[in-house]
């Protein structure tokens, strides 16, 4: 269980209390500036918590050493930046730094990441020469090379084409089936409704709703939080939405 207990971070999160069950794909939705990225950074230990605490399995995450946190979680920031034109293959290797696992496991995860995200033809290319979408795929693959129990992804599908959006979400579902807890910030509500087990809706740093997508993405919540009205189109293949601005 990942638990936020009355967490306050100046101007970004206000008295947030929510319990995220393990082994679920949880989407964090909300308008720009709602606090989605801050929430993920807070779990990752990248922001200073003014008040309250974040617990994982009843232990305050602040008491985790850097190494213990590394063994627990992996984090994908909203914007992936790479500072030297190292090759994709080298990056995947470097992304496994400080992971405690057998070399056979590490090699296997690396190979799987390469295959899952179809990076074989990019393996020897310098990362800085790739397109934004390709770089994003590599960044997600870097996460895949170090499978952790808690995975935090800030807008993982932004910048990806439709095929890789679905591929990424399918991969996240697979991770969840293997027992990982995955928390993602996501703007695409249709994708969130289709894939996430639970959704947390934030607005102005406060939790508006938390639960299954059907309940969270209610007309009232969408109208109140996003100022939109939505018509949903659903079948067994997926979810689509038609949105209109309420004041438009």
């Amino acid at each position: 269980m990942l638990k936020f207990v009355d967490v306050t971070i100046a101007n970004r999160l206000t008295s947030l209390s929510v319990s995220i069950p393990t082994g679920k794909l949880v989407g964090v939705v909300g308008p720009n500036g709602a606090g989605k990225s801050t929430l993920l950074k807070t779990i990752a230990g990248l922001t200073h918590i003014e008040h309250g605490r974040v617990e994982y399995e009843q232990t305050d995450l602040r008491s985790y050493s850097a190494d213990k946190r590394r063994q627990l979680l992996s984090y994908l920031p909203q914007f992936s930046q790479f500072n030297e034109p190292v090759t994709v293959g080298n990056l995947l290797q470097l992304s496994q730094m400080n992971i405690r696992a057998s070399s056979a496991d590490l090699a296997c995860w690396q190979q799987n990441a390469m295959e899952n995200f179809e990076l074989g033809n990019l393996q020897c290319r310098p990362i800085t020469e790739l397109s934004g979408g390709e770089q994003r795929r590599v960044a997600i693959a870097c996460m895949a090379t170090c499978q952790r129990p808690l995975m935090l992804l800030d807008e993982p599908v932004s910048g990806l084409d439709l095929y890789y959006q679905l591929l990424t979400m399918d991969w996240l579902k697979t991770c969840v089936k293997k027992g990982a807890t995955v928390v993602i910030a996501i703007h695409d509500l249709a994708l969130a409704a289709q894939y996430c087990d639970q959704l947390l809706m934030l607005n102005n740093g406060k939790a508006v709703a938390f639960g299954c997508p059907n309940d969270v993405l209610s007309d009232t919540n969408l109208a109140h939080t996003f100022q939109v009205s939505v018509d949903w189109l659903c079948n067994e293949n997926g979810v689509a939405m038609l949105a209109n601005r309420l004041n438009g």
Binding site: K41, A44, G45, L46, A66, D67, R69, R70, Q71, L73, S74, Y75, L76, P77, F79, S80, Q81, F82, N83, E84, V86, L91, L94, S95, M97, N98, I99, I127, C142
Partner: peptide, 19 residues
């Protein structure tokens, strides 16, 4: 090891188990 991972974003490095 810390030098090697400087190819990644600063925030990513902070979650990679380094002090």
């Amino acid at each position: 090891r810390f030098i090697q991972v400087q190819v990644f974003d600063e925030q990513v490095v902070e979650t990679m188990g380094f002090e």
